[in-house]
Amino acid sequence: MTAWIAVLAASAIAFGFKLFGYTVPPVWLEQPRILRVTEMLPAALLASLVVLEGFSSGQQLALDARLAGLVVAAGALLLRAPFIVVVALAAVTAAVLRMLGWG
């Protein structure tokens, strides 16, 4: 049930933002500082999500096979691998390490 609320609420809000852009007078959003914050916010959020998904286990920090997956992913990104390859390599790395009994 909670998942349903999340799915529908997030969808409604996102659609509201999309529509809002076509309605709002440009001067509201085009101030340099507002633009800067809007542009930079995703970097903070995404970095935060990398840490959360990669190093947390409930409310604790944890180092396990995910770390190796992330390192491999970073290497793939440096080599300009496409998104799907990056994600798949990380999964395979972690899966293989766990199969071998680590992490």
Binding site: L46, L70, A73, A90
Partner: peptide
């Protein structure tokens, strides 16, 4: 390794 894939997905977006 899908949990590692999730983290990698965010890294790739970043």
């Amino acid at each position: 390794g899908l949990d590692a894939a999730a983290s990698a997905a965010f890294l790739a977006l970043l």
